[in-house]
């Protein structure tokens, strides 16, 4: 019984973080129409720079700001200098270029800092309170609240703000956007910058749990992919629900079956959703009318 409760409660907690990794991907998808494989590596660079700042005596606040700042800038650079220009050859080369970027960043990290995992500081190691018999730490609470705030913010951004709506428009019909004077390149760049900072935030929550290595945030990319396929590509809310479900599902699998089966179960869940609802649980079918 305790195990069940713990699995579910902690599943929700980590699920929200999973959802966050899906959200970063959705932001790029919404403006550019493809997926970035480099987000984990972008976050890793931010985290290593942040760790250096921490070791140099900066407090947690400074570390966090550094991480987010570096991944934001790096996200913008990758998008602006490499991937967005490659869109002229089509979406496939653009998406492939993110794999190339990931390989390069991963290689550079391997050479400079090495592949050994390191400890990364968390917001606070103090316990906050017990919930349904499960002890939650302050870092869990902060992670959940921050993610929830980001989700609400993103939903609002894409639904209500002019820039968010224009970003969706550019992805919908780039030509029409250009004709109307929408600065499409700039908006895509904004998408990459936002996604970069999101991956930095994500890294801050992940690194203390998984410990920091060049590939640790990449691991989470898988959960993000599952979250957006299950939740529906264009739905931020879908990513949230799917992320939480994935968190609970993987905790239950790991507690009652075998931790080694978790990735397989996630993949199977993804395929199942594709069979039943090809556009994800909350994705809208693209309306086409001639």
């Amino acid at each position: 019984m305790d195990l069940l409760q713990a699995s579910i409660v902690l599943g929700v907690v980590v699920g929200i973080v999973y959802a966050l990794s899906g959200a970063g991907l959705v932001v790029i998808f919404r403006t550019s129409g493809y997926i970035s494989f480099a987000q984990g590596d972008i976050a890793a660079v931010g985290l290593f720079v942040g760790l250096a700042a921490y070791k140099a005596g900066g407090g947690y606040g400074l570390t966090a700001v550094t991480v987010i700042l570096v991944s934001t800038v790096l996200g913008g650079l990758v998008g602006g200098l490499i991937t967005i220009p490659l869109e002229r050859h089509g979406h496939l080369p653009a998406a492939l270029s993110t794999i190339g970027v990931g390989l390069i960043i991963g290689g550079i990290l391997n050479v400079t800092v090495g592949g050994d995992p390191r400890a990364f500081p968390e917001v606070s190691s103090a316990a906050a309170f017990d919930f349904a018999g499960v002890r939650l730490g302050w870092s869990d609470i902060v992670g959940m609240l921050a993610s929830a705030a980001i989700f609400i913010g993103l939903g609002f951004f894409f639904r209500r703000s002019r820039i968010g709506i224009a970003m969706r428009a550019v992805n919908d019909n780039r030509f029409a956007g250009q004709i109307l004077g929408v600065p499409d390149k700039r908006l895509k760049l904004v998408g990459w910058i936002v996604a970069g900072s999101l991956s930095g935030v994500l890294g801050l929550f992940v690194a203390p749990i998984l410990s920091l290595s060049p590939v640790s945030v990449n691991t989470l990319l898988v959960f993000g992919f599952c979250a957006i396929v299950i939740g529906g590509f264009d739905s931020i809310f879908g990513a949230l629900v799917a992320g939480v479900s994935i968190g609970v599902l993987s905790n239950l699998t790991s507690a009652y079956v075998d931790p080694n089966l978790v990735p397989t179960v996630l993949w199977a869940a993804m395929l199942l959703v594709l069979l039943i609802r090809p556009n994800g649980l909350f994705g809208r079918r693209r309306l086409v009318r001639v």
């Binding site: 494989f37 496939l92 998406a95 599952c226 590509f233 993949w267 395929l271």
Partner: peptide, 9 residues
């Protein structure tokens, strides 16, 4: 390109 997500997983 989205087949990449399922095959990646």
């Amino acid at each position: 390109i989205f087949t990449a997500l399922a095959t990646f997983a």
